[in-house]
């Protein structure tokens, strides 16, 4: 627990055009940890991921991966530094087949899964490897969006609401996949609205409100803090 964080975010501010959307966000993720961001819609969870990734360009503060500054890097260098991104809208490309979608992101370091391993983990994708990417069901597209990052050897994966709009049996399946990734030592930063799902996989929680981090606590305290959460999240 005393080791330096893999990903370190300090005093992160970010703007969409003129509007100031993140106000001094602090965040630490240690190697192998799964951390979940909770918060209402519009609290800044997705924005935090996009700001770390560098998709949102107007930022101030500190973002370091293993002590290496990410803020000054152009967008494509962030991925090359070892961060994988699974966007909320999944971002499956219609003009690419499933297998082309899978091998699209360039490898960023050794230790990624091979295509064979991925197809073993996701047999559906193998079956439909030559279909058009967007012809897959929502759940399959989500699997594909996660799978293509696993191939790249990214050390940390930013996952934006992977269970949104999916049937319980698919959510279960995605949960299994995340558990398997945790076993392999993958570091995960997850944005999630589904408590039951998050509780199963998360080691630690951050609570966001109005573009700020308002609290953080270990995963096992989730049940005890339910009342507080209900108040902040308004559920």
């Amino acid at each position: 627990m005393s080791s330096a964080p893999l990903l370190e975010v300090r005093g992160l501010n970010a703007w969409y055009g003129e509007s100031h959307v993140l106000h001094g966000v602090d965040l630490d993720i240690r190697e192998g940890e799964t951390v979940t961001l909770l918060g209402r819609n519009g609290a800044g969870k997705t924005t935090t991921l996009r700001a770390i990734m560098g998709i949102l360009r107007r930022r101030e503060g500190i973002i370091r991966l293993r002590g290496k500054d990410l803020l000054s890097l152009p967008l494509h260098k962030v991925a090359q530094a070892g961060i994988g991104y699974v966007p909320e809208e999944r971002g499956i490309f219609a003009s690419l087949s499933v297998s082309e979608n899978l091998v699209l992101p360039p490898t960023v370091s050794d230790g990624g899964m091979s295509v064979e391993e991925i197809y073993t983990l996701f047999p559906n994708l193998h079956e439909r490897r030559s279909s058009q990417g967007t012809k897959l069901s929502g759940g399959e597209q989500q699997m594909l969006a996660i799978a293509r990052i696993l191939r790249t050897g990214a050390k940390i994966i930013l996952l934006d609401e992977p269970t949104e709009g999916l049937a319980p049996v698919i959510v279960q399946r995605i949960g299994d996949v995340l558990m398997a990734l945790k076993k392999r030592g993958m570091t995960i930063l997850l944005v999630e609205q589904n408590f039951r799902f998050a509780k199963k996989v998360a080691d630690r929680f951050y609570l966001m409100e109005d573009g700020r981090m308002v609290n953080s606590f270990p995963g096992h305290e989730l049940d005890a803090r339910m009342d507080e959460l209900h108040e902040v999240l308004g559920v």
Partner: peptide, 25 residues
Amino acid sequence: TQLGAYLRAATENATLVQAFGVNVP
């Protein structure tokens, strides 16, 4: 080809392709 796949993907969503580590510029 893979280069062609980058091109087709970037035609749809250049930002995401760059976020995957492809030098889109």
